[in-house]
Write a protein that binds this DNA or RNA. Structure first.
Length: 318
DNA sequence: AAATACAGCAACCGCTGTTAG
DNA sequence: TCTAACAGCGGTTGCTGTATT
């Protein structure tokens, strides 16, 4: 049984009635939103202005989209959250029809739980070492990556993903090691890559972004030439897996890698950092799959189970 | 069938930051 | 510069519907 809304200082609280909604809508249609403090008086509502504003912005606004979040929306939320942190209004601004409160609720009740369940820290978006209990493996692997890679004559996506994982997680206390690792990974040669040493195109954001540890479970994401690449040493891998200079300029790429290492949400300003638009070289990429379109892989997955299995497949690499 | 536990979500609270007069 | 109003955020509450015991 729903409790009746109680009153405090003559102001009604609790759930809004249809009649109240109508009054608010009619008033705002006639006068527009704003002047929230005086609005209740003129609209004939026994509510505080703040309550009216919240009711309007979170529920009554005509452009609000109700219903379940699509997978694309969820992807967007996760990506934006990894950049912006808990800036729900900024995230909502990039999701037409969704309110910050709705996104916040959805994050806390769905996405956050699923990330935690799959061993992803919802704050940093990094894999949780404590969850994986891989620290011993990682420590040894870190000092002997070359041997690790020699275990597999074929460099498949799992190896590269693991390498990324090592770089992003195994030495989280040592940023210098992180950067050294990624500098080596990304730029083993002279930073100014020439055409002779033109490396293979690699969907680098998918590899470098820790979030894609959740998502990379299909070989199709990688160019065939890389999947079948034979490498004897880590240097071999490094030298062959640089991005092409027409896909990225190297400084930006390293910057992105560096950001991926920490993957801390930026709280510095209100502006969304420039999105790195990935343009894969279609001539060398059998199936170009930009970061933002990773959802297409499971675009038709609409239920929670499918999303979860999709997210958790990354842990099969062990 | 009833009681209980849980999930989802609308709404509220208290606080801080921004803006306009 | 000060102040009030507004906007936004993070955390929380409490109601409703559903699942489980």
């Amino acid at each position: 049984m729903r409790k009746l809304p109680f009153e405090k200082d003559g102001l009604k609280k609790g759930p809004w009635t249809e009649e109240e909604d109508l009054k608010l809508i009619q008033y705002i249609r006639a006068h527009g939103p704003g002047k929230w403090r005086s609005l209740p008086k003129y609209a004939g509502l026994q509510r505080c202005g703040k309550s009216c504003r919240l009711r309007w912005t979170n529920y009554l606004r005509p452009d609000i989209k109700r219903g379940r979040f699509s997978f694309e929306e969820e992807e967007t939320i996760i990506q934006l959250h990894s950049i912006l942190g808990n800036k729900w209004s900024l995230i909502a601004a990039r999701l037409p029809g969704r309110t910050d409160n709705e996104i916040k609720n959805y994050w806390n009740t769905h996405i956050r739980k699923r990330l935690l369940k799959n061993g992803i820290d919802p704050v940093t978006h990094n894999p949780r070492i404590d969850f994986l209990e891989l620290s011993s493996i990682l420590n040894s692997a870190w000092f002997n990556l070359s041997n690790l890679l020699n275990l597999q004559t074929l460099v498949n996506p799992q190896v590269l993903t693991l390498a990324t994982f090592l770089g992003s997680s195994s030495c989280s206390s040592n940023k210098e090691n992180h950067e050294l690792f990624f500098n080596r990974l990304l730029n083993p040669m002279n930073p100014t890559l020439n055409q002779q040493n033109r490396p293979l195109s690699v969907p680098s954001t998918r590899i470098l972004n820790p979030r894609h540890l959740m998502q990379t479970n299909d070989m199709q994401d990688f160019p065939e030439s890389l999947v079948n690449l034979k490498c004897d040493t880590i240097q071999d891998v490094m030298m062959r897996t640089c991005v092409t200079d027409d896909c990225f300029d190297i400084p930006n790429y390293n910057k992105q890698a560096s950001e991926s290492l920490n993957f801390q949400p930026s709280y510095g300003g209100n502006d969304l950092p420039t999105t790195q638009h990935v343009n894969y070289d279609s001539s060398s990429m059998p199936s170009p799959t930009p970061l933002v379109s990773s959802s297409t892989i499971i675009n038709n997955s609409s239920n929670e189970d499918e999303r979860e299995s999709y997210s958790s497949n990354m842990f099969n690499l062990e």
